[in-house]
Write a protein that binds this DNA or RNA. Structure first.
Lengths: 338, 338
DNA sequence: TAGCATTGCTCAATCGATTGAGCAATGCTG
DNA sequence: CAGCATTGCTCAATCGATTGAGCAATGCTA
């Protein structure tokens, strides 16, 4: 093993001090242009590799941002993470990733781990059941943290969320205008702000339309998968065949519901209307294409990254909360009530 | 700002030396059971946070594994990353993530960055056009590296790949047995081993069946999105309306192709048969559900993680290459030739 | 009971970049 | 030309955990 090339090695070779090398390599103007060029040349020739550990120890950070989401296989989260990563690339920060899979312990241990690691900040989609105080306990009082997609009832955190109530109220309104009166709700069985807020929007929409909230038409599901949607839809059709409109917590659920309706011989978009939520890319290509609440995922991801960078620069600034408005997208799974 | 709680703080509070605390916290048996318990208790009360930077500087590593894939929004990669992360959780390593987006420079700078960071190893799906020597140049001669999904013609790297040629030969065989003679190929316009190997499998399958390779039935696409599939399919239908079988580089392309056929009034599964590749979850719920080549994604991700851990433990062991066999899944988009 | 091993800790050097303080040389101003 | 600022560098402390060497106390063996 050849001994490591450090600042010291370079300094000796260049006949200057260690500090001079350190400053020169970072283009500090206090070192003259020529010296800087020479030092860089020598460093290059010697094959100097910057040791971030030493710098990290000294500076206390490590130019890393942590992102913890529930499940990357959910295209919504994949889109969030992708746009965060892109937004951070300019600030030369790497992304530390975690899939919490709704397990609070995984989330907590990731947070501890990335704190040890000296990560600069955290973008978090808290697992179901996360309490704000418990989270604050884990991340510590002033650690730059931005909640994304799922908020918490605590305004000490920066947050970026989709306007869930709005999206669902719009969806209910749309169905009502199409003449639907028996409208079902599938999903949101998790203990998350998203689940609560979407359901609240559903309820508010019905209330505004003067419609009753029928418990047999509300079917929370533990998961948000295609299969869960299929099962829930079958259950609803069995319990309340008169239903003509269905709103779903997520697109995957909605696609499952579509497939269940078809199994039962219903033509979706004519016999029954279904609206999903999120607008993941795939849904546009189903036949009939899925009507859905379009969530501005890239915007949310980018905003989360921006807020986090701001927070890192100004740890004591007042917390910011951003609510991104969704819009309704009509495709083939909605139509006038039969 | 309260001053940081370090080993020193804890040592002072516990009335022992810094070393004792360091050893105790890591359960070194050279410190007595009782002292260890007491030290841990005090550390906990003081809110001691382990500073990995100091340890990293001292030990030279940082218990991190880097993963670089092309695009997380592709469900296949999301699945890979998820299973790698799960597999690594036991070894208490964090995942540093990068989406290279087919840009060699992004890939290279990520690699340099994570090397500085002291990452323990790399799982890489090389961007299109990556040459083995160039990659070796960037990662250095002995850095633990596992290529995943996309291989390189270089046996100095560990590799885990799907058996692409096999999958496509099986798919061609299946269509031929169903009576298809005019079989098209959509996708794989990228300069990746995957693209080459799948196309090679397609060609081999035709050859085995004694069928000619018709250039008008081969349509490489630059992207593997739904939209790209739709466009390619339209082009093929225009140029060669007699086509009855279509193989696609990926499921998204295939779904796009399905949607294009439908626009043209063709009933997929009867008038024309389409087979995708990868078997992403959504495809099973399309109507008709997509027939596809099922790639064992979790297996590939887990295997990549395992190989990497082995490689980290034994940097000089001979390189390992794993080929994971896919299987054909028949659903609704395939049927006898009309 | 001398001699040696073991136990249980402490000491202090170490990893390598960063940075505030400091200093010599030069330029500039009044 | 004294006095001050600026330029261009050096000095040395510092971040905090790790670890080989060392040492005192105790136990064990011959």
């Amino acid at each position: 093993m050849t001994p490591r090339v450090t600042l010291k090695t370079v300094a000796a070779a260049a006949g200057v001090s260690v500090s001079a090398v350190s400053l020169a390599l970072r283009d500090n103007p206090r070192i003259s242009e020529e010296k800087r060029a020479e030092i860089k040349r020598i460093a290059g020739e010697l094959g100097y590799i910057y040791n971030r550990h030493a710098a990290n120890l000294r500076t206390g950070t490590n130019d890393t941002v942590s992102v913890c989401v529930n499940d990357l296989r959910n295209p919504v989260f994949a889109e969030f993470v992708t746009s965060i990563e892109e937004a951070l690339r300019e600030s030369d920060r790497l992304v530390l990733l975690c899939n919490a899979h709704e397990e609070e312990e995984v989330q907590a241990s990731f947070i501890r781990r990335m704190l040890e690691q000296g990560s600069n900040g955290l973008v978090l989609s808290p697992v179901a059941g996360t309490r704000a105080e418990a989270l604050r306990e884990v991340v510590g009082p002033q650690f730059p943290t931005v909640l994304m997609s799922r908020g918490l009832d605590d305004d000490s955190f920066d947050q970026v969320v989709n306007d869930d109530p709005l999206g669902l109220r719009l969806a209910v309104q749309a169905l009502v205008e199409l003449g639907h009166r028996k409208i079902a709700w599938i999903g949101g069985g998790q203990d998350t702000s998203t689940a609560r807020r979407r359901f609240a929007g559903f309820e508010a929409g019905l209330r505004e339309a003067g419609l009753p909230i029928d418990p047999t038409l509300v079917l929370p599901t533990a998961h948000t998968t295609l299969e869960a949607g299929r099962r829930a839809m079958i259950q609803i059709l069995d319990a309340a065949p008169e239903v003509t409109g269905v709103l779903c917590f997520g697109d995957l659920l909605a696609l499952g519901a579509v497939s269940a309706c078809r199994e039962r011989g219903l033509e979706v978009g004519r016999d029954i209307s279904i609206i999903g939520h999120d607008d993941i890319e795939e849904t546009a290509y189903f036949d009939p294409a899925l009507s859905t609440v379009h969530v501005r995922k890239r915007m949310i991801g980018r905003t989360a990254a921006e807020l986090l960078l701001q927070r890192i620069d100004a740890p004591f600034a007042p917390p910011v909360s951003r609510v991104i408005a969704p819009r309704l997208v009509f495709r083939g799974t909605t139509g006038p009530a039969p």
